[in-house]
Design a protein around this nucleic acid. Structure first.
Lengths: 218, 218
DNA sequence: AAAATAAATTAGATTAACCTAATTAATCAA
DNA sequence: TTGATTAATTAGGTTAATCTAATTTATTTT
C-alpha cells in the first residue's frame, strides 16, 4: 500500500485542487503539510513515479485518477471515523480532527464499509462535510455561504468552511447547531455585521468573518 | 511519541518475556518480527537509548518499567479494538487480528478509555485474552490447558493459545464456542486423543495438539 | 525587455529502519 | 578444554522522508 506520508500528500493535493483550481504549487503543499519546499519536490517525483500524480517541474502537480481514488478513500475514512467518534464515543465536533487524521490511514476497505453500515450510512460528517460513497463519489453540495445571503433570506445550517476548534467552540457557545434553521434579520452596511435569528427565535449578531464561514442550504 | 516499529518491538519483547522468561534473545525477536538479526541489534541500541529496554550486548533484552507500560498499553488497545470489531462491526474472531494490529497504534489514551466504556468495559477480547485496565494492570488468568485435564474433569472454555485463523476456524466448525462448558469423557492412552462433551451433549474427539491449545477455567 | 523578486529545483546531509557479508562471542559436545 | 556450531555484533550499504544552502526558473515591476 501507500505510506502515511504519501496519503497525506494525496489528501493535501486533493483539497488544494478542489479549493484553488487545477494545478497545485509546491509552496502551497509545503505550507499545508508543514514541510520545506525541497521535501515536496522530492516527494512529488517519487509519487509521479508511482503514477499517483502528474508532475512537471516548476509547473505544479495534479492528481491522476488513481491518486484521486486514493485521496477520496482517505477522506471517506476520515469522515466516517469522525462520525463514529462523535455519535458513538461522545466526542464533541471540535475534538475529533486529530484522531480522525490517525484513523483515516487504517487500510481496509472492508472495515470502512462495515463502519459505514454500523453508523447507518451517514451522508455527512459532524461538520457537515459530505462523505464519499464506497465508489469514491462525493455528493455535490449545493450549500452556500451565509455571507452571500440578503436580508430576509433563510436556510438550514449545514456546514462550515473553518474547521478550527476555536471557531467550532464559538458556534457552540453562541447557539449554532448543525441542521438548525437560520434567518437573516439584518445586515449592517457599515461593517457587514449580520443579525441572525436562530432556532427558538434567539437573535445573535455575528461578524462578516463568521458569516463567511457558515454554509447554509435551502 | 514512539514509532510503530518501536511499538511492535516492545510488544514482541513483552510477549516473549511473558512466554519464555526474563531476557529475550535477538534471534527470537528477529523471528517474530520477521526481520534479520542485525536490524534487531540496531533497534535495541536505539531503544536502550530511550530507556525503553535494558540491553547488554550478547546478553539479550528486557523491558524497563517504561517499556512495559507502553507495551501493555498497546496490548490494551489491540484487544479493545478486537472487541469492537467483533461485537460492533460483526467480524468473526478469526478475522480481526490484522486490523487490530493497525488500530492498536492509534495514539490517544482518551480514545482508548472512551472505547473501553463504549464496549462496556470488557474483561477479555474475542479470543479470551484478558484486557489490561487503564493503569496497565493485567488480570492474572487462572485458566489452564485442557491437556492437563484428566478423565471426568470439566471446565469452561475461556481462551486459546493458538490464535491462527486456521485453528479458530477449526474450533468454529467443530462446535467450540468461548464460554461454553467442556467435559473430558475420555483420554486415549495410545495417542492422547481427547473425547470431549461440549455444550448440548455433543461429543467430539480432538487431538492432543488441540487439547494443548485450549484454555479452560473452573 | 531588463532588473528585481519570488518560487522551485538541485546538491549534499541526516535519521530511522532495514539489508548482506564478515567477524566476534557464547554455548555445546567430544 | 579445545573445537565446532550457533548466536550476536560490527562494518558498510540502501531507501524514504526530511533538512539547509546554493542555484535555477518564473513572475512581476519598472
Amino acid at each position: 500500500m501507500h505510506s502515511f506520508t504519501e496519503e497525506n500528500y494525496l489528501k493535501a493535493i486533493y483539497k488544494l485542487q478542489e479549493a484553488n483550481g487545477l494545478v497545485v504549487a509546491t509552496s502551497a503543499l509545503a505550507q499545508v503539510l508543514e514541510v520545506h519546499a525541497p521535501s515536496v519536490t522530492d516527494m512529488l517525483k517519487r509519487m509521479a513515479g508511482k503514477k499517483l500524480v502528474t508532475y512537471q517541474k516548476s509547473k505544479g502537480v495534479k492528481l491522476t485518477e488513481k491518486g484521486r481514488q486514493v485521496a477520496v478513500g482517505i477522506i471517506r475514512n476520515h469522515r466516517l471515523w469522525e462520525v463514529f467518534l462523535v455519535d458513538k464515543l461522545g466526542y464533541k465536533w471540535d475534538e475529533v480532527h486529530d484522531l480522525a487524521e490517525q484513523l483515516e490511514h487504517i487500510h481496509s476497505e472492508d472495515l470502512t464499509n462495515k463502519l459505514d453500515m454500523f453508523l447507518g450510512f451517514p451522508k455527512a460528517d459532524p461538520h457537515g462535510d459530505p462523505i464519499p460513497d464506497a465508489n469514491g463519489v462525493l455528493p455535490k453540495s449545493k450549500a452556500v455561504l451565509l455571507s452571500t445571503f440578503a436580508e430576509g433570506d433563510q436556510g438550514t445550517f449545514t456546514g462550515v468552511t473553518d474547521h478550527s476548534a476555536t471557531f467550532l467552540n464559538y458556534l457552540d457557545k453562541t447557539g449554532f447547531s448543525l441542521g438548525d434553521p437560520i434567518k437573516v434579520k439584518g445586515i449592517e452596511e457599515y461593517d457587514q455585521t449580520y443579525t441572525l435569528q436562530l432556532k427558538g427565535k434567539k437573535e445573535v449578531v455575528v461578524s462578516f468573518k463568521v458569516a463567511n464561514s457558515l454554509l447554509l442550504s435551502y
